[in-house]
Design a protein around this nucleic acid. Structure first.
Lengths: 152, 152
DNA sequence: TTTCTTGTTGATAATGATTATCAATAATAA
DNA sequence: TTATTATTGATAATCATTATCAACAAGAAA
């Protein structure tokens, strides 16, 4: 077992779960991409490496990984969910998404994160006071037209 | 035809569309609520007034209204889309949503809109320069636990 | 080791929201 | 009045996601 895998195994152990081959492969696929893959797309990449791993297993484990706080599930308005590894060495830790309504491409961006965090904090404080609402998460997404689609 | 209806009729006309009874009723339902109704929920309310209007018609017209810029479609992560009238006399023009992950209730809020607009503007400018991306819309949502669910 | 418990898997069927199809109908234009 | 075009409602189809369930495999207990 590779060194990185041992880490994963321990992480699963803590939740009383096992670090299986399908889980290893799914994490591998997610680690190797900067894209925002859907369950179906993940399944296809997984399938190339291990043709015996089924789609159900992919769905099931994406849910597991989500609960474990390892992946995040997004909805960009194209009829399916898309998944992203939270701790990826291919992406900035905290970032948001730019969705092109033309070609559906998704661009990560992480500018003005300080300003954003400042703004979010302010809102959180006000909301917890005004509505006694305890914020645990937020989603910020931008929609528009990318360079290519503008030219076309 | 009521005075308000004439306005709607003209608006549809401009798009080469007709202001029909199903459309009138759907708009009526949306105007009369502060909730964030799903297509199914809208259909049920519409159905009470006009039992002959079908679910398909509701879906179709919500799409039409969306394209016309009259309603906005949201996705709060509960497996369906929810619709809101853009120009409603029951809601502030610009607002965001607080989603309780416990009871799924959605709270509108419109605090700190100035700060937000300031922040958004900054991001828009930077993005258009950096990625030549032209932003047309954005989504900001907060997830957390509401008062009731916290107590329970 | 053997046995027992429990997590995991893959195939299949089921669900639920949304869309496509299509003939019938109603509104508008010619 | 007729021709055109938008609209409708019912039905079937689609697509992503979940539930079911028997077979299997890893780890714990004996």
């Amino acid at each position: 077992m590779a060194k990185g895998d041992r880490k994963w195994r321990d992480r699963f152990r803590k939740h009383g779960l096992r670090f299986t081959e399908p889980r290893r492969v799914i994490l591998e696929v997610l680690s190797d991409t900067i894209e925002h893959l859907s369950a179906e797309e993940i399944y296809m990449k997984v399938h190339k490496k291990h043709p015996n791993i089924g789609l159900t297993t992919v769905y099931r484990n994406l849910y597991t990984l989500e609960r474990m706080g390892i992946v995040t599930k997004f909805h960009f308005g194209d009829g399916c969910h898309r998944y992203e590894l939270i701790e990826s060495n291919k992406k900035p830790d905290h970032h948001h998404h730019l969705v092109c309504t033309g070609c559906k491409r998704i661009i990560d961006y992480d500018d003005f994160m300080d300003e954003e965090i400042e703004y979010i904090k302010k809102v959180e404080k006000a909301l917890s006071r005004k509505h006694s609402f305890h914020i645990t998460d937020h989603v910020i997404q931008f929609y528009g037209i990318c360079k290519k689609c503008k030219a076309a």
